[in-house]
Design a protein around this nucleic acid. Structure first.
Length: 160
DNA sequence: CTTCTAACA
DNA sequence: TGTTAGAA
């Protein structure tokens, strides 16, 4: 079952296929390419790069960006506040990190940055590509992120 | 298309 | 601070 997997299965998944150029995404979301690059620098989005170092976005990247843009535009959230919320996602729970690993993990001890933004060699999960990690992937959908955290963390926390 | 810097509201 | 404009 994919519920217990830490990565999304990769069999020509249309949702996660990186096919859109930055210009295409900018046109789809009605924003400038400059802005999309800023959001990437700030760690809000992780597009992959083609061999020519050009950004490629998937369909889920586009909906993730839609979520971000509406948070900034409509809900008047700042980039920093989005980063703050993302930094509070319990990745150690979601990925079932051991206690002794979590204690020394840079992703756990760093405040204000999401785990996928942290470049450190002391990441407990040892994730190579955070783009394919469930913590990053499932946190992009504003409408289901709370349910995702409930499902992904231990069931004993659910009662009460 | 890319990164970088400067500037606007 | 979010966003845009232009250089190279």
């Amino acid at each position: 079952m994919e519920k217990t997997s830490n990565t999304i299965s990769r069999t020509s998944d249309q949702q996660h296929d990186p096919v859109y150029s930055i210009g295409t995404v900018a046109r789809m979301l009605k924003v400038s390419v400059h802005l999309l690059r800023l959001y990437e620098r700030e760690g809000l989005i992780l597009p992959i790069r083609s061999e020519g170092r050009q950004r490629l976005y998937s369909a889920s990247d586009v909906s993730r960006l839609g979520c971000i843009i509406s948070a900034i535009r409509d809900q008047k959230m700042s980039i920093a506040s989005i980063q703050k919320i993302q930094s509070l996602i319990p990745c150690w729970k979601i990925r079932n990190c051991r206690e002794k690993d979590r204690i020394v993990c840079a992703a756990f001890s760093t405040a204000g940055k999401a785990c996928w933004m942290i470049k450190s060699d002391v990441l407990a999960c040892g994730m190579q590509s955070c783009r394919e990690c469930v913590v990053y992937l499932r946190s992009g959908d504003c409408s289901s992120i709370k349910q995702f955290i409930i499902d992904a963390t231990s069931p004993e926390l659910r009662q009460q």
